[in-house]
Computed example of a mutant assay.
Amino acid sequence: MGCGGRTNSHMARDSWPVSTRPVALVTGATAGIGEAIARRLQSRDHEVIATGRNEQALDALRARGLCARNLDVTDHGAVAALVEEIDTRFGGVDVLVNNAGLGFASPLEQAAMGDLRRILETNVVAMLNLCQTVLPGMRSRRAGTIVNIGSTGGRFTTPGAGAYHISKYGVEALSDALRAEVERFGVRVILIEPTGVRTTFAQSQLGATPIDEGDDPYGEFKRRYAEITAELAKTPLVSVSADKVARVVVRAIEAKRPRARYVVGMSGKASVIAHCLLTDRMWDRVLLKRLNPTS
């Protein structure tokens, strides 16, 4: 059983059941990958605290028996309060799945600094803050698993989504450094790198700025980027389902000796290999073949 019925968006502590099951905190769990992970962990007998900001989706999670909480991961005070609640009621977070994230597409020349800060705050800073918040408890128990949902976009860069790639490269560095630092405390850090995922998240990548081909020097480029991204998001061979990513996450959590990183999706694996084999000039030429109006 999970939290059961919802009393309000800030449920009282004593409405949470005492549980001896592993406790998993999953961010960005109201849709897509996060929702699939939360449901799979629940089916694997975890006590799941699923967080997000869509109240209707949170209600649906509660109806399935999950503890669902409204949480803005960039609100560090709210994060600290939630983890304190979990520590008090359940004895701590055993598994943290950092899934919450934002997409963003724009030529870097036109990327507003406010948008860049928002992307970095959500995709990188909030992730590190969540890690810092659960780590004292994990260190004291000398056990715990942190799963960071990154992207193959942290291994290579495509034009048109530079700000997003900057954030995902940050997730790579965060995960690699943290893994080495906390291993001696019995805490495992696992990085999941999906290729394109067939969710509504892909739609958020289709352009952050209006496309005006008349006055916009990047107008044609952005139009082609939006078309190609929409096409790829619907192509089974170059994208994966949210549930496939969730299966890999659960397998990694349950592994006795998980790998440091898991690339999910054949197209993602092929792209990572190609990026290693091609020169920078060759890589750029391949990417710009359909994007560049003069190519």
Rank of each mutant, 00 (worst) to 15 (best):
A233T: 11
A260T: 11
R13W: 01
V197S: 08
V95F: 04
A274N: 03
G150M: 01
A63D: 13
A274C: 03
E172F: 00
G4C: 05
M127E: 10
R69P: 08
Q203P: 02
C67S: 15
A173S: 15
T74D: 05
T158W: 06
V147M: 02
V249S: 12
D280K: 13
I228G: 10
G160W: 08
M113F: 00
I119Q: 14
A57M: 00
G2T: 06
G170I: 05
P293F: 06
R188E: 03
V238H: 05
L82I: 08
D176C: 03
I273W: 14
P136W: 02
S19F: 04
E213I: 14
L41Q: 07
G196Y: 10
E109F: 07
V272H: 01
Q110T: 13
G207N: 12
K168P: 14
W16Q: 11
V48A: 01
S140V: 01
T7C: 03
A31D: 08
G28E: 12
I146P: 04
E213P: 07
R257E: 15
T235C: 02
R89E: 04
S241C: 03
F201V: 05
T74H: 07
V248R: 12
A105C: 10
V134I: 02
G103D: 00
V124I: 14
F201N: 09
C276K: 14
P210H: 07
V272E: 11
E47R: 14
P210I: 01
G103Q: 03
W16C: 06
I166H: 05
C67E: 11
V171D: 12
L120N: 05
V124M: 10
M266H: 10
Q203C: 01
T152S: 01
F201H: 00
V286Q: 13
V79L: 03
I211S: 00
V147K: 04
V248T: 13
Q110W: 04
A126N: 07
E193Y: 08
T30R: 00
D45E: 15
V23D: 09
R44T: 02
D59F: 00
G268I: 03
Y225H: 15
T74V: 13
R155E: 15
A255L: 10
S151P: 12
P210C: 10
L58F: 05
